[in-house]
Computed example of a mutant assay.
Amino acid sequence: MTLLPISCANQKQEVEITKSEKMMVRIAEVEIAPEYLEEYMGILKEESEASVRMEEGVISIFPMYEKDNKRSIRILEIYADKEAYELHINTPHFIKYKTSTVKMVRGLKLIEMKAIDFNTMPEIFSKLGEL
Rank of each mutant, 00 (worst) to 15 (best):
A80V: 03
P63G: 07
G42Y: 02
T120Y: 12
E47L: 05
I32F: 07
H88S: 01
L37M: 12
S72I: 00
K22F: 00
K82M: 06
A33C: 08
V25E: 09
I32D: 03
S126Q: 15
V102M: 15
G42W: 07
C8N: 04
I59M: 08
S20H: 12
I43Y: 03
K45A: 14
M23N: 10
E35I: 10
I124R: 09
T2E: 12
T18H: 11
K82D: 04
I75C: 00
K45F: 07
S100G: 04
E38C: 04
R26Y: 10
I73M: 04
I111S: 12
F118Y: 10
L131F: 11
M54E: 12
L87P: 00
E38P: 02
F94S: 01
H93V: 01
Y97K: 01
Y36A: 08
E29G: 00
P34Y: 12
I27F: 14
P34T: 09
A84T: 04
S48I: 09
I59W: 02
K22R: 11
K109F: 06
E46G: 00
T18D: 12
H93N: 03
E47S: 04
P92L: 09
E77Y: 02
T18G: 11
S60C: 10
C8V: 03
T91Y: 00
I43W: 08
E55H: 01
K82E: 08
E47A: 06
A9G: 01
K45E: 14
I27S: 09
E49W: 06
M64Q: 10
T2S: 08
P122T: 11
D81A: 01
S100T: 12
S7K: 05
K96R: 15
V30N: 01
M121I: 15
F125K: 14
M64L: 13
S7A: 07
L3M: 08
D68E: 15
L108S: 06
E16S: 06
F125Y: 15
Y65K: 10
L131Y: 13
S100A: 04
M104C: 06
K114H: 07
T18F: 10
K103H: 10
C8E: 06
M23Y: 08
K12N: 02
E66T: 09
K109C: 03
I6H: 06
V102P: 02
N119R: 14
E16D: 12
L131A: 13
S20C: 13
Q13I: 02
E123L: 15
V105H: 00
R26P: 05
E130H: 15
R26N: 15
V25R: 09
M41V: 06
L131P: 02
K98Q: 13
I78H: 03
V25G: 04
C8Q: 09
L108M: 10
E55A: 08
Y85S: 02
V105F: 03
Y97L: 06
Y85R: 01
G57C: 01
F118D: 06
L131K: 11
R53A: 06
E38S: 12
E29W: 04
E112T: 11
G129T: 11
V25P: 05
R71Q: 14
I89W: 01
G42D: 14
P122E: 10
K98M: 11
